[in-house]
């Protein structure tokens, strides 16, 4: 299974005249979703719901309108999985994964912003051909590398590979040099950007090192969080 991110309250009821929205993002069978719960904490019913996104770095837009066909009564909640795609207009946000959302109902229009986990953008065909991987790695200068420590991890290299593969981070090759496992990995984002990585695991050392190697270094910090 792919990793499930924590559900967060995106829009507290006190800021939205009684409407509370909590949610998370997920990727299932090659599709992105915004999984949300709408709760009516007001004393009146709510109808006429609609959702809209501001332009964002990855061109994320809802694939369908919000499917809420019946009024949301006081104290009632509804779970909605909104399918998303990345064919919308692109505008670079800071941070890169920031998403600004507008939700309307019969009472008012409300706004919130949230961060989309980068892993939602890792596509299923992110396994780079081995020959292409080697050539690409050579073409990227070492200045385009960034290193990160993953602390307190107690899995072996194969388990790590399996877990990452479930999240569309693919191990292209594994080598053991002087007792240290070196995993060469690739992933591709929905916008076509490839990221190459080297993951180092030393026996008996719970701290792993991941070294990202890509021409697009602005996404590295987000990537490390996903590792």
């Amino acid at each position: 299974h792919s990793f499930l991110w924590f559900v967060k309250v995106w829009l507290p009821a006190v800021k939205a005249k009684g409407l509370e929205i909590s949610g998370t993002f997920s990727r299932r069978q090659g599709h992105m979703y915004m999984d949300m719960s709408f709760i009516n904490k007001a004393l009146q019913h709510m109808t006429d719901f609609a959702i809209q996104f501001n332009k964002n770095s990855f061109g994320v837009i809802p694939t369908t309108p919000l499917a809420m066909h019946t009024p949301l009564m006081p104290s009632q909640s509804i779970d909605i999985s909104l399918p998303l795609n990345t064919i919308g207009p692109v505008m670079k946000m800071d941070p890169l994964n920031n998403l600004q959302v507008a939700v309307k109902n019969n009472i008012d229009v409300f706004y919130f912003s949230t961060l989309i986990p980068l892993s939602v953008f890792f596509v299923e065909d992110g396994k780079m051909e081995r020959q292409v991987f080697l050539a690409t790695w050579k073409d990227i200068p070492n200045e385009n590398e960034l290193q990160y420590q993953i602390k307190d991890c107690h899995l072996n290299a194969d388990t790590v590979s399996g877990k990452l593969q479930n999240n569309n981070i693919y191990t292209i090759a594994k080598r053991n040099v002087e007792g240290q496992d070196m995993l060469y990995q690739s992933l591709k984002l929905t916008n076509g950007i490839w990221i190459l990585a080297e993951l180092r695991i030393q026996p008996g050392n719970p701290n792993y090192t991941v070294i990202a190697h890509s021409t697009k270094i602005d996404q590295f910090q987000l990537l490390f969080k996903n590792y």
Partner: peptide
């Protein structure tokens, strides 16, 4: 034969990274 070459290339890469 070509795949052997790739296997070796990855070994060389890993070694060069460990002992630059």
């Amino acid at each position: 034969e070509m795949d052997d070459g790739l296997e070796e290339a990855f070994s060389r890469l890993a070694e060069s990274r460990t002992n630059p």
